[in-house]
Design a binder for these strands. Structure first.
Lengths: 221, 221
DNA sequence: CTGGTCGGTGCACAAGCGTTCACTGAACGG
DNA sequence: CCGTTCAGTGAACGCTTGTGCACCGACCAG
């Protein structure tokens, strides 16, 4: 059988226009995609090497040409997932910084990214607690990076710019937590637009509530 | 081999002072405890009937005398876990309602319960996304109940008592989300007191920030 | 005392798992 | 052109898995 796409690619026959490294990368991507899909029922630890291989269209042992173990595959998936998450953060940051509707645009960017990268968000939400220890700590580390980034962003805002850096991080932690909860509720909406809209509206109100709290907050001496 | 406690209980020999139903319940509890522990590495879907049986000290097929499947066992664990969670909520509610330190006492109750019921909290945090569909929706349903309960509690507070019920639920959702995040961070602290204390202190500040936000919030007309 | 109930036993089976090993042949560098 | 590299092959291994079945014997109601 041929890898990557069962009916079209021909490994032993005439060469497509692809170099050897290109074909290897293609198979690698197929493995990642298959694992992401298979992990949706039962989590990463329930993904079997043989299932992935069958799904990709290669023999089980060929898996080892790309990853040493399922756990290493999981770490690669974490990387992949946080690439799209960072893309989202970039979008949020580059949005119109008109203070008034910064919340609206951020929530919209979040809902769109969750819809577009559903698989990655699901993976992170799941493996954050269910994954192998190495995967869990990789995810935790990445989330912590996001919090620190947000804290430095907040420091540039007119209200909290006079805060203790301690309080800045605490607020960032609170916001990231709320965003994670919102993302998880969006996932639970399973694509139903009305449910998604309700979650988004709720998130807007919550962020506004937090904003009101922040604007009336004074760091203790 | 004998169930419940390998060296002491004797099934075929002289009877301990236990009736048949008592012995069955004891075995059932042992199965639940074993499953909870085994689920810690790999999640519920990675728990095998045979492992549980070996751990409890019964033969694999005897498992079916208590549960039809691992999934049904999972639902029983959800029930068990939310029993302790409700006990926690009762403790929070019955605490001294002196408005000033209601936050301090709530956070202390939370940290104590997470420490005492670590296994249950871990189970909920994990299976909320990684578990079988039935388990996931059972957990989601229970959390939603907690949010509604909290909303009715909030309605009795001096500040938000004039709010729209819509906003009350939104605030309850925000608080529950923050509490869930805090519980998850307490779990991530893995029992190290200094880390736990830092999380608790952060949670106190966050709840105060939300309180400030709530006190300055006005429901839109 | 007796007969039914039922938790626990022991064996068997087919299916799936990760991993090993020697192999093939297209793509590539010199 | 020719030798090397290496992604993918295919058979084989020892193990664990869920589940079906006939069976046992302590408990308990009558």
């Amino acid at each position: 059988m041929s890898p990557v796409s069962s009916p079209s690619a021909r490994p032993g026959a005439a060469a497509d226009g692809l170099s050897r490294v290109e074909r290897k990368e293609l198979t690698r991507q197929s493995i990642l995609a298959a694992a992401l899909r298979l992990a949706e029922t039962g989590g990463l630890s329930a993904v079997s090497l043989r299932q992935v291989a069958k799904d990709v269209g290669i023999v089980p042992t060929a898996f080892y040409r790309h990853f040493d173990s399922i756990e290493e595959l999981g770490l690669a998936l974490v990387d992949e997932a946080f690439v799209s998450l960072r893309a989202m953060l970039r979008d949020v940051r580059s949005a119109d910084p008109a203070f008034k509707d910064i919340i609206d645009s951020s929530v919209r960017v979040l809902t769109e990214h969750v819809r577009a990268q559903r698989g990655h968000f699901l993976f992170i939400a799941r493996e954050r607690f269910a994954g192998p220890a190495a995967v869990r700590s990789a995810i935790r580390h990445e989330i912590e990076l996001c919090e620190r980034e947000l804290a430095t962003d907040l420091a540039r805002l007119p209200g909290p710019d006079a805060w203790a850096s301690e309080d800045l991080y605490v607020l960032a932690n609170l916001i990231v937590g709320a965003v994670v909860s919102t993302a998880e509720e969006l996932l639970a909406a399973e694509g139903r637009r009305s449910a998604e809209d309700a979650v988004a509206e709720r998130a807007r109100t919550q962020l506004r509530m937090m904003l009101v709290g922040a604007l009336n907050w004074r760091s203790r001496p």
